[in-house]
Amino acid sequence: MVKKPLTLFGQKIRLKTIALYVLVIAITVVMLMPFVWMLSASLKLDRDVFAFPIEWIPSHPRWQNYVDIWTKIPLALFIYNTTKLTVIVTLLQLFTSSFAAYAFAKLRFAYREVLFLAYIATIAMPWQVYMVPQFVEMRALGLNNTHLALICLQAFTAFGVFLMRQFYMSIPDELCEAARIDGMNEYQIWFRIMLPLSKPALSTLTIFTFVSTWNDFLGPLIYLTKTELKTVQIGIRMFITQYSTEYGLIMAASMVSLVPVLIVFLALQRFFVEGIASSGLKG
């Protein structure tokens, strides 16, 4: 008498769990379907790409696609350009943001509030509102069709300063005071105390900057028209418009462009989730 409802109850729970797993797996499959299809198509002949029913695992995988893309378009150069831009922008962003944020959070000086207000006021300002005058200005400075333009565009964001300042505010002032009494100057305090303590915020900022620079489309589209300067995103875009029917090759190039982001994402996945959860804001 006692056993029966228990097993029933147990069975009910098990059914529910199974249903939950089925649902989650089904959603995951739908979410990842485009990537699987991309991978599968990248190993096919153009005429087989759209064959129906879909042959998910090609019987004669065409690895040649992954050889051809390097010669058909300067994909290696595009990847080099993007990597260069991404690394420089990320380093500059980390350095200048944490440096400025230290002053805004821990130092007292005239016009501190006014200067910080200038940052706050622009944080909600969409880049698209001022991209045109910015372009005109860069052109006047002779930066059109240079990588420097994109570096200047992305390395000094209000977001970075804001994020780092919020984090530094949570570090007690007494720590800085103690260091000052020990005879450290402000630069040493920033370098030896604040930077090591702010690893979580720095990794959040690294991830956001890396992803947004690597994946930026509109910036390079406006600034870079010379093929040898192009980034992966607009390089592949060019390739797609030139060889619009070479599906296998397009898919192979797209796969390659995903790899760096995938590696960074898998390596820093934990920080990604924690970073968004704690800061939550990126426009």
Partner: peptide, 28 residues
């Protein structure tokens, strides 16, 4: 002196921000 130190912290970011963000916004 402390203001100068503070400004030296802010300057690298703020100059870039002023020229490439704030300026274009006013221009817009």
């Amino acid at each position: 002196r402390s203001t100068l130190v503070a400004l030296s912290f802010i300057a690298p970011n703020f100059l870039g921000f002023l020229i490439f963000t704030l300026g274009p916004i006013l221009f817009a």
